[in-house]
Simulated scan of single mutants.
Amino acid sequence: MYIPRFILRCSGVLGYLVQYGCIAHCALEYGADFVVCSGPSMEPTIHTNDIVLTEHVSVLRNHVQKGDIVIAHSPTNPRQYICKRVVAMEGDRVFMPKNDTHSLVPKGHVWLEGDNTSNSTDSRTYGAIPYGLLRSRVFYRVWPVYDMGNLKHPAER
């Protein structure tokens, strides 16, 4: 049976595209990816339209620590992502401003807050979130170029 050379070449190219697509998907899903942040909740650390580099390994291996900035699924809208700082881990006590009490972060949960506390919807509103909603840890700002570098808490600047 004769198969035209054009079809053979196209199938070879298609095979490579599928392979590279799978590699890119795995790298972005389990390695690292870029995130464009929006909203004022993390100002002055991260501003709207800043592009940050995130890694997934810390979340997958349960190595997220207090002070880390993370990307998580919103507990109120699972299709939306939020960018917040980890303020407390399971077993830590946190102050609940709503009812002026202290609360214990449950096992398997983290307490997230934005750096801009006056303009952030975070765990002070919806409580501790399950660790399973965490997607990645932010570790480097890529854009804007003049502010490129590792991210530090405003108190450390």
Score class of each variant (00 low, 15 high):
Ser58Asn: 09
Thr45Tyr: 05
Leu14Ile: 15
Pro44Lys: 05
Ser118Gly: 09
Val18Gly: 02
Cys37Tyr: 11
Pro75Asp: 02
Tyr140Lys: 02
His56Tyr: 09
Gly12Asp: 14
Asp68Cys: 08
Ile82Asp: 08
Trp143Ile: 05
Arg135Gln: 14
His47Arg: 12
Tyr16Lys: 07
Gly149Asn: 07
Ser38Asp: 14
Gly132Tyr: 00
Tyr30Lys: 01
Ser120Ala: 10
Arg141Tyr: 07
Glu29Lys: 13
Leu104Thr: 13
Leu151Asn: 06
Ile51Met: 10
Gly12Arg: 10
Asn119Cys: 08
His109Leu: 00
Ile129Pro: 01
Met1Ile: 13
Phe34Ile: 08
Thr121Tyr: 11
Val105Ser: 04
Glu156Val: 03
Arg9Ala: 15
Asn150Lys: 14
Arg135Met: 05
Pro154Asn: 07
Leu28Arg: 12
Gly39Asp: 12
Ile71His: 08
Pro44Gln: 12
Tyr131Arg: 05
His56Phe: 08
Leu112Gln: 04
Thr117Glu: 15
Ile69Lys: 08
Leu134Trp: 12
Ser11Phe: 09
Pro4Tyr: 06
Asp147Asn: 14
Arg61Tyr: 12
Cys37Met: 13
Thr54Ala: 13
Ser103His: 07
Ser103Pro: 00
Asp50Gly: 05
Glu55Leu: 00
Leu104Gln: 08
Lys98His: 07
Asn49Ala: 09
Asn119Glu: 15
Cys22Ala: 15
Asp100Tyr: 07
Thr76Trp: 12
Asn99Asp: 08
Asp122Glu: 05
Ile71Leu: 11
His63Ile: 02
Lys98Gly: 01
Thr48Lys: 09
Ser74Glu: 05
Ile82Met: 15
Val70Gly: 04
Val35Asp: 03
Val145Ser: 09
Ile7Phe: 11
Asp68Phe: 07
Asn116Gly: 10
Glu156Arg: 10
Phe139Tyr: 12
Asp100Gln: 09
His47Thr: 07
Arg79Val: 15
Gly21Glu: 06
Val138Phe: 01
Arg137Phe: 10
Leu53Ala: 09
Glu113His: 09
Cys10Ser: 13
Val87His: 04
Val13Cys: 07
Glu113Trp: 05
Lys152Pro: 02
Ser123Gly: 04
Val70Pro: 02
Phe6Tyr: 14
Val105Glu: 03
Pro97Leu: 00
Glu156Gln: 14
Val52Trp: 00
Lys107Trp: 01
Ser120Cys: 06
Cys37Ile: 15
Ser120Phe: 11
Asn116Leu: 12
Ala32Val: 09
Ala32Cys: 11
Ser11Asn: 11
Ile51Leu: 07
Leu17Gly: 09
Ala32Pro: 00
Val105Cys: 03
Gly149Trp: 11
Asn99Ser: 04
Arg9Trp: 11
Pro154Gly: 05
Phe6Glu: 15
Ser120Ile: 08
Cys37Ala: 15
Met42Cys: 10
